[in-house]
Simulated scan of single mutants.
Amino acid sequence: MDRRIPDDLIERAYQGKNTKEDARLLLQTPPFELFRFADELRALAVGDEVTYVVNRNINFTSRCVGTCGFCAFRDNKGYILSLEEILARVREAASAKATEVCIQGGLLPDVGLDFYQGIVEAIKAEWPEMHVHAFSPMEVYHAAHISGITVKEALSRLKKSGLDTMPGTAAEILSDRVREIICPSKLRTGEWIEVVRQAHATGIPTTATMMYGHVETPEERIEHILTVREIQRETGGITEFVPLPFMPYNNPIGEKMIREGRYATPGTEDLKIYAISRILLHTHVENIQTSWVKLGKKLAQFALHCGANDLGGTLMEESISKSAGANNGELLSAEELEWMIHGAGRVPKERNTLYRGVNKLAVSGRKKAAGYGTLQ
């Protein structure tokens, strides 16, 4: 049986018109043939630069009224950061030359939009140039409901307060069948899509994520990626796509999987997800981000040869993945990220949240003459 990628599928990929049937064929393609083609499309779309952002995660509370079965972070006797504590973390990020703070937290009962606006306004008052990348579609939906206003109005108020972009998290798998199993109290697929569309219409770009490797089928993964493609075709507001492997530790969904003899996704399967994402999203979403927190540094580095072109952020403080069993650290310096990029044979570039270049390279500008970060 010939398992090479058919010529007509390749042509549709170049045009950004791959179908579900094409995606099914890609799943059957030998891994390194798939990786090679995804890498070819990556080079065509974005060249040899690999980007990263100097940022800090701030998870302002571990308390949550949600019931997500995959969550190991929720603790209803846990912490809530005061505004002063949040600002102290932003101050540390600014001192470390971060250009972005990424702010998310659990869903607090009876906490409406004023709370979220207050965070953004306080940050912008002291650091007007700091990019505020904050609040998932679920958080915006929840805040709007508590405040008795529409999602459109909530987004408009957040924009006026200074919100720059939103993380496209809470997507998990965009299938109501899956969501009924893993997050029954979370917003439905159509509601997530509508919040994201409304954000784009309000002038708030978002990322898009996919948490895979739990109860979804390969078909549902494909449909998720194609849904992201359709949103992007309509709005153009997605800055990057971020596949996130499920961490099956310290949470009910994962514990059930492990009892059944299923564990975290194999590395080859992770890399195939990156490759298929690049192929299906070609000409639509330029940037495919790999997660060094989820994959580990070496597999994330190899993902740069499987369609990915972005290593995400330095993070400085990462709590959610760590609580679910990720053991790859909470912080990487810009220097180490650039070391990884050079080691993959690519050109590092610090970016801001909107993928515009900032500053000089942490490594190349100071140490390239000494051979630092190059393969010998």
Results as ranks from 00 to 15, higher is better:
residue 121 E to V: 12
residue 122 A to Y: 06
residue 122 A to G: 14
residue 127 W to N: 06
residue 130 M to P: 05
residue 131 H to Q: 07
residue 131 H to R: 05
residue 131 H to K: 08
residue 134 A to T: 09
residue 134 A to N: 10
residue 135 F to D: 07
residue 136 S to A: 14
residue 137 P to Q: 12
residue 138 M to N: 14
residue 138 M to T: 15
residue 142 H to A: 12
residue 143 A to T: 12
residue 143 A to H: 07
residue 143 A to L: 09
residue 144 A to K: 02
residue 146 I to Y: 08
residue 150 T to K: 03
residue 151 V to C: 09
residue 152 K to Y: 01
residue 154 A to G: 11
residue 155 L to E: 07
residue 156 S to F: 13
residue 157 R to L: 14
residue 158 L to Y: 03
residue 159 K to D: 09
residue 162 G to D: 09
residue 164 D to G: 14
residue 165 T to Q: 12
residue 165 T to S: 15
residue 168 G to R: 03
residue 170 A to P: 03
residue 173 I to K: 00
residue 176 D to A: 11
residue 177 R to F: 09
residue 183 C to H: 02
residue 184 P to Y: 09
residue 185 S to M: 15
residue 189 T to N: 11
residue 189 T to G: 02
residue 191 E to L: 08
residue 191 E to A: 10
residue 193 I to S: 08
residue 194 E to I: 07
residue 194 E to Q: 15
residue 195 V to N: 08
residue 195 V to L: 07
residue 197 R to S: 11
residue 198 Q to A: 14
residue 198 Q to P: 00
residue 203 G to E: 05
residue 203 G to Y: 01
residue 204 I to E: 02
residue 206 T to A: 12
residue 207 T to S: 14
residue 208 A to K: 00
residue 209 T to N: 04
residue 210 M to I: 10
residue 211 M to Q: 03
residue 213 G to Q: 04
residue 213 G to P: 03
residue 214 H to Y: 05
residue 214 H to V: 04
residue 214 H to P: 05
residue 217 T to N: 00
residue 222 I to Y: 03
residue 223 E to P: 03
residue 223 E to Y: 12
residue 223 E to F: 13
residue 225 I to M: 09
residue 226 L to N: 06
residue 232 Q to L: 01
residue 234 E to L: 08
residue 235 T to W: 02
residue 235 T to Y: 08
residue 235 T to P: 04
residue 236 G to R: 06
residue 239 T to F: 02
residue 239 T to Q: 14
residue 240 E to Y: 00
residue 241 F to C: 06
residue 241 F to Q: 04
residue 243 P to E: 09
residue 243 P to K: 08
residue 243 P to M: 06
residue 246 F to V: 03
residue 246 F to S: 02
residue 247 M to G: 03
residue 248 P to L: 00
residue 248 P to Y: 01
residue 249 Y to Q: 08
residue 250 N to S: 11
residue 251 N to K: 03
residue 252 P to S: 10
residue 254 G to M: 04
residue 255 E to P: 05
